[in-house]
Design a protein around this nucleic acid. Sequence first.
RNA 1: CGGGGCGUGGCGCAGUCCGGUAGCGCACCUGCUUUGGGAGCAGGGGGUCGCCGGUUCAAAUCCGGCCGCCCCGACCA
Length: 651
Amino acid sequence: MKSYRCRAESSGRAGARPISYRTAGPRTAGRLASRVSPRRPADLVTIPSPLRTTPNGRPVNRTERTGQRVSNLFGMTLRQAPGEVEIESHSLLLRAGYVRQIAAGIFSYLPLAWRSLRKIEQILREEMDRIDGQELSMPVVHPAELWQATGRWYDIDATMARFVDRRERDLLLAMTHEEVVAFHAASEIQSYRQLPAMVYHMQTKFRDELRSRGGLIRVREFIMKDSYSLDRDPEGLAKQYDRHYEAYERIGRRCALPLTAVRSDTGMMGGKIAHEFMYVTPIGEDSLALCDACGYAANREVAEFTLEPREGEMSPPERVHTPGTSTIEEVTGLLGISAPETGKMVFYMGSFAGEEGAREEKLIAAIVRGDLEANPIQVQNLAGALELRPAHEEEIAAAGMVPGFASPVGVEPGAAIFVVDRWVVESPNLVLGANETDYHLRNVCCGRDYEPTVVGSVALAFEGAPCGRCGEGLRMARGVEVGNIFQLGTRYSEGLEATYTDEDGAERPIWMGSYGIGTGRLLACVAEEHRDDYGLKLPISVAPYHVSLVSLAREEETWATADRVFEELCAAGIEVIYDDRRDLRAGVKFNDADLRGLPLRLVIGERSLEAGGAELSHRGVRESRIIPLDDLVAELRQEIDTLLSRLALDD
RNA sequence: CGGGGCGUGGCGCAGUCCGGUAGCGCACCUGCUUUGGGAGCAGGGGGUCGCCGGUUCAAAUCCGGCCGCCCCGACCA
């Protein structure tokens, strides 16, 4: 009986024939009735609860579902995680029924994760409101013109998803919302009297990353809280920036996620000052340089460190025969010198903005001390390139240099952009290639033997490098970028003519800041931080529910008691997930509860009732205590309050 | 984009070298027994073996192409 199928071709007109649905048989109906109350579900309640308050502490009454039966929960637990999963938090979120992947870097949030995400969003909302943010919502699809106005339509590569509508108008999927905010600011902000201002929203972003990985850590579609500050001058911007900095620290504490603020590159955002809020973990994709002595913390891309230049008078250059030595190691071995006595050349092809949005490629040669690595981000920034890729040997040769024995000496000016590290500029008598196979040059001196195009800090910080601030050794660590804050300046407001009129009647560009937090990524990091061998151990501020109520009832009377307790907890506004599944062994339910990782667990069965009530325990803690049924609501509220207060901040 | 790996019921896998009835564990459905840390017995349902093409009497298996996913290197919340 396939009465639910309706084939369009059989009727000639789709929808012309009424679709008949198979009705639930008596058995199905009976089973449903035993699971869900027929009229007003007990778990759908209006909460006049002190647990629900506005940021100002006023109680909020609202109708909301505070309970969920496991028998009917959309999202089952998995005993085994899919084989391709590598990160523990990802595996647990999948196994516990929080998320499901539908394509590379594209996930659905099942009800559990969505509840957690909403809690995270509420925390973000409260903290943004606290620093005078106004929530709004901006679209995911943007017209190309906005991004053309700031140039990013041309600057950003295939990471931006573009498409055309039926009228062949160019559109894009939002990667972030600076353009739209500037667009609105242009029309909404007229006068200095309207500044400062700050707006934010929680919105989906799409970035077609070269590679998504790490489960929820790095995805292509994600929800971000992004806020934007508007100010009349750099001082106002700095102030809003600082307020965000503090708000982000509060958010980390409220979500029980340790965050380290590090100085960072501004990347595609532009601007000058930026920090990233990092969750330090070995699974992180970013490299960090941390100084335990003075607290300096920076993304390795921008980490500053000091190196003493080589001493000595300039000696005349000397060509030496060095057969078969194309690496630093081979050269130093043959010549009996140390790597810091040499210079290393690293070649990139940089792409630069040309006419009409076209791209032009140019060879970039970075020169750093022989034992160090070049820092591609700095090379890119110093050279002014939009993008870098490693150069091919032919491209190096085309500029008149010999790969393996390359040097800037004798190269035609303009053949390549020489980005030279400060240390190399200051250190005389280095060994570099001779641009001739099997020959090197001794005593190469920058300024005498060749001219740098740009000078800067081009070497990548390394473990033990002297901290640029205090001189102690830097420590390298890995981290996940949960949030960031940027002082953008006027780039976007100028591109979109977002100006205000000041007291003197002069029209000035608005100073903008932009501040993001990836909500799903935040959840993934919380899961990574709070877990054990049995599953998640979510902090109460983030957990989808407060309590796992586990019924181990065998007799109908006990089931009725468990059902009643569930309904009472719901009615009291306690968020509870109720494992009401029958014919399952205790171990299965305990394991599922452990996996879901709610902070509290309440067990009801014949055994607990004989002992005097229900058994309450904390996730991951062996001890438990029996609570009389009449005291449950009060005791649970107390426990929840205590847990929440541990994450609370004094205002 | 370069390198590597993998696509077989919802999940985990075997089968592929050496072509011939699609299999195992978990999950699911029915019944009975069990029941405080992933139960037992019996019965049952579910898979165009990623897709397209080729070779062959015969393809999950061999050949070619494509697609998808995962991992390692260049982008970012």
